[in-house]
Design a protein around this nucleic acid. Structure first.
Lengths: 225, 225
DNA sequence: TGAGAGCATCATAATTTTTTCAAAAACAAT
DNA sequence: ATTGTTTTTGAAAAAATTATGATGCTCTCA
């Protein structure tokens, strides 16, 4: 569950955003000015801050500046139409996106989702590595390693391996492999697959054994674990 | 190892300061006037600048003003006794301390230590610098340096590099790069990316190796550390 | 308004990958 | 064991992809 901090001096706007944010599955807290936003950031952990530019006491940019000294939190700035800001200036402050008022809550949430997923994606912990004995496959990084050693594959080898793993322990006919990996419009020889399987097996070294030949049918990635 | 830049038009004074600075464990470089100081700041990264007020070509205050536009570096000003300056004016420029000539090198170094430790302490949390071997990337300042040397990138190169780093170790398809960096409404050639990757690689010198080509897919910033 | 920077595009060179094909090997059934 | 069928393999041709260098366009700044 992600927590958002909404900073705007207009109660109504905060309300609208908060409501839609909660509807979208976020937990939302509010601050009415930059000063109290800073205080709240010190006390709590937020995943993202939505911050208005124009506010009494402490404007949005200054608040962001202070906040970034405390914690590194993604920020989306709200600015009124006609207010011109130097995007570069924003970048320096670590601002992730701008949304111009008036905006639709839906659009704002789309931006929130986008920023958060971007952050998540770069978070190492979300890297899904699958392990099959000494064979490690990292889909996101598009890498594999065999007994701890990085192995480079050709594009088709990756495609083939990834596809077979995603369908592990399932018999895969040549037809199916061809149409799913090569595309329905592939115009070539059945036996092309055999060659790629051969190459892939060679690349996998000892773990070639996971790729099983199904005579008369095709192949299968077999692993029970 | 901290690097100092000593800016003074009098050779003798520079010499004395440099000697004592190195004795105190700093790396010290020299500039004889404001102009060349600016040039050196552009090229290299310094942790602190010791700057004389009275200098030919470009006085100390003006030089600091320019330098602060480029990088945020702590400054200690040297001024002759009798020269009256508005301290507030100095504060606005981000000057951290004043030392009045004639000074003892020991006193000056004490001030240097004080300023640097103050900066270190306060800056820890806001440091958005990432290091990849000899490649330093400062997201906030939108600067990079290669083996300690400041490198200028074009806007697109920054965008590309920053995006790739934020998604390091993740395979990035050309589609994704295009839509996330150029924008979903970019209606251009895939191969445009290749050209920018080429430029970026050239800018990164030895660290071009971090940008890996993923044949049939796109690129990836690869760094394990 | 002229110089320079940055960018998109393109043609070509350099490189890698894919496909093809035929011989050898493996297999399954008689 | 023999035979017909299917798979594996190695090598070479063909195709695809990427790197690079050059070009012209646009925008900015002096």
């Amino acid at each position: 569950m992600k927590r958002l901090l909404i900073v705007d001096d207009e109660d109504k706007i905060r309300e609208v955003i908060k409501e839609y944010a909660e509807f979208s599955g976020y937990v939302a807290e509010e601050a009415a000015d930059g000063m109290s936003a800073i205080g709240m950031v010190k006390l709590n952990d937020y995943d993202l801050i939505i911050m208005d530019v124009m506010m009494p006491k402490l404007d949005g940019f200054s608040a962001v500046k202070e906040i970034q000294k405390i914690k590194n939190i993604p920020v989306i700035m709200l600015s009124a139409r006609g207010e011109e800001y130097d995007k570069l200036f924003g970048f320096e402050l670590g601002i992730d996106d701008y949304v111009v008022k008036p905006f639709s809550p839906k659009e704002l949430m789309a931006r929130v989702n986008a920023v958060l997923s971007r952050v998540d994606a770069s978070d190492k912990s979300s890297q899904t590595i699958e392990r099959f004995d000494g064979l490690e496959v990292n889909f996101a990084a598009r890498t594999i390693s065999v007994d701890g050693k990085r192995i480079e594959l050709t594009p088709k080898e990756y495609d083939l391996l990834f596809y077979m793993i995603q369908n592990k322990n399932i018999a895969l006919s040549r037809d199916r492999l061809l149409s799913d990996i090569w595309g329905y419009d592939f115009f070539g020889d059945d036996r092309t697959i055999d060659t790629h399987v051969k190459n892939l097996r060679n690349s996998l070294g000892p773990y070639r054994k996971f790729i099983v030949t199904l005579r008369g049918v095709g192949y299968k990635f077999e692993y029970e674990g």
